[in-house]
Deep mutational scan, measured.
Amino acid sequence: MEVRTIKVFTTVDNINLHTQVVDMSMTYGQQFGPTYLDGADVTKIKPHNSHEGKTFYVLPNDDTLRVEAFEYYHTTDPSFLGRYMSALNHTKKWKYPQVNGLTSIKWADNNCYLATALLTLQQIELKFNPPALQDAYYRARAGEAANFCALILAYCNKTVGELGDVRETMSYLFQHANLDSCKRVLNVVCKTCGQQQTTLKGVEAVMYMGTLSYEQFKKGVQIPCTCGKQATKYLVQQESPFVMMSAPPAQYELKHGTFTCASEYTGNYQCGHYKHITSKETLYCIDGALLTKSSEYKGPITDVFYKENSYTTTIK
């Protein structure tokens, strides 16, 4: 009895394709271990004539594949690729409408935090270190965002349907971005203890939790000093293409032309909904596939993004 075979390709990165001759009487799992086709788990399936010449994702289970996976995804987590594939199996079914010149995501599976993050990423200057993220990001900007969303979920250790947080998501993504040249110098002034300067680099240099107003941050924000008295913390120097200011959701007025974009969060910790506000020729609110415009805006804002380049204080 002759062994019926077909020729397929296996890959971990969709760049390096490895030619395989597979036995049609055995499952993919018996031949390769966990195997995925377009995100779908085909591990328990036997090869079919229609699979001839198709590319299958496999887990990096030998040295060659491990090197290829690390170079593309910059992670050695053995569960990463499987999590990416199972997320992709959902995100490829989502709709990605162009809204006001940006790629958004039609609401499904509690994905409003991903839509808000995706919209924000198209408006701030950011370059990702893992080629996987950078490639998928370019495709997302062009309207094909399924891979990018699935990668975000995998890097953030999230599953489809789980509630997510924009600030946490951005923080994970910033860790995989090139923020080497970003720098922030802060000064804390206390009447009792004097003053202390701190220099922050990388992710810490672009994120701040405690106030939404970048102007206020430049002037000074009140913080408790270690001595128990009130101290003032203010920005001395900022070198970065953008800054992200966050605070627990509270009524906040966004003035046209003073910011790049913002995240609105309605609801409580267990259950809520994100919308995205962007400042173009007027203010726009993007909620999944829905767009509304207004000249002014007041609502429960939790993150505001500002364009920056270089700032030095005039406070002496």
Rank of each mutant, 00 (worst) to 15 (best):
P47W: 08
L133K: 11
K46P: 12
K298V: 15
K158V: 03
P131Y: 08
L133W: 03
F174N: 07
E239Q: 11
K298T: 15
C182V: 06
V3L: 12
E68H: 09
F259E: 00
N178Y: 07
F128Q: 04
F217T: 07
K293T: 13
A117H: 02
E168H: 12
C193W: 04
V67N: 15
G272T: 00
A132N: 01
C225I: 04
D41S: 11
E296T: 15
L114E: 06
C225V: 03
T312G: 07
C149K: 02
F305Y: 01
T27F: 14
G82L: 13
E215W: 05
E71F: 03
G272V: 01
T232P: 01
L59I: 14
V221L: 14
T5N: 10
E144W: 06
T258P: 03
A145Q: 11
K229S: 14
V22H: 04
E162I: 02
N111K: 05
Y234T: 08
Q270M: 13
I301T: 00
C190S: 05
C193N: 04
D13G: 12
K183D: 03
N129K: 15
M244P: 03
L59A: 11
F174Y: 03
H256A: 12
T10H: 11
V185H: 01
Q31P: 08
S25M: 02
G194P: 05
K183M: 09
L17M: 12
F217P: 01
D62A: 09
C149F: 05
I223Y: 11
A87R: 07
C190F: 05
L151A: 02
V304P: 03
F56M: 10
S171C: 15
K293V: 11
N178F: 00
Y73R: 07
L153A: 00
K183G: 05
Q122E: 06
G39N: 10
F80G: 04
D109Y: 00
W107A: 04
C190N: 00
R167Q: 09
N147K: 11
S240M: 00
S25W: 01
D41E: 14
H51K: 04
L254C: 02
H176S: 04
T103D: 04
S310M: 13
M209A: 15
C112Y: 01
F80K: 01
G161Y: 02
Y36Q: 11
D41R: 07
V42Y: 13
L254V: 09
V160Q: 05
Q122L: 01
W94F: 12
A146S: 11
S295A: 15
Q30F: 04
L102Y: 10
A150V: 00
P34C: 07
G164H: 00
H276N: 03
N111Y: 01
S263T: 10
N268Q: 07
A87P: 02
Y269H: 12
D180I: 09
T19A: 13
Y234K: 05
I286E: 00
K307P: 15
T10F: 00
N129Q: 14
M245Y: 15
V304A: 00
V188E: 07
S181C: 12
M24G: 10
Y72P: 06
T103I: 13
H48W: 14
H51Q: 06
D77W: 03
Y208V: 04
K44Y: 12
L65A: 10
D23K: 14
T5P: 12
Y72D: 08
H256D: 04
R83T: 01
P34A: 13
Y306C: 02
T103K: 06
F242L: 01
V166Y: 00
V160L: 06
R167C: 01
R167K: 09
C112H: 09
M244L: 07
T302L: 04
A132F: 06
V221M: 09
Q31M: 10
M26W: 14
T75P: 04
Y28N: 10
P248G: 03
M24V: 13
T76P: 10
K183T: 11
G161S: 03
D63P: 08
D135A: 10
V42L: 12
Q196Y: 14
G267K: 01
K280E: 05
Q175A: 03
Q31A: 15
P97T: 08
L126W: 06
T120A: 12
M24P: 12
L290K: 13
C225G: 01
H176N: 04
T282K: 12
V166E: 03
Q251A: 07
E253F: 01
N89H: 05
K95W: 13
G33R: 10
G194E: 11
L118K: 07
T313G: 08
F32W: 15
H273F: 02
F305I: 12
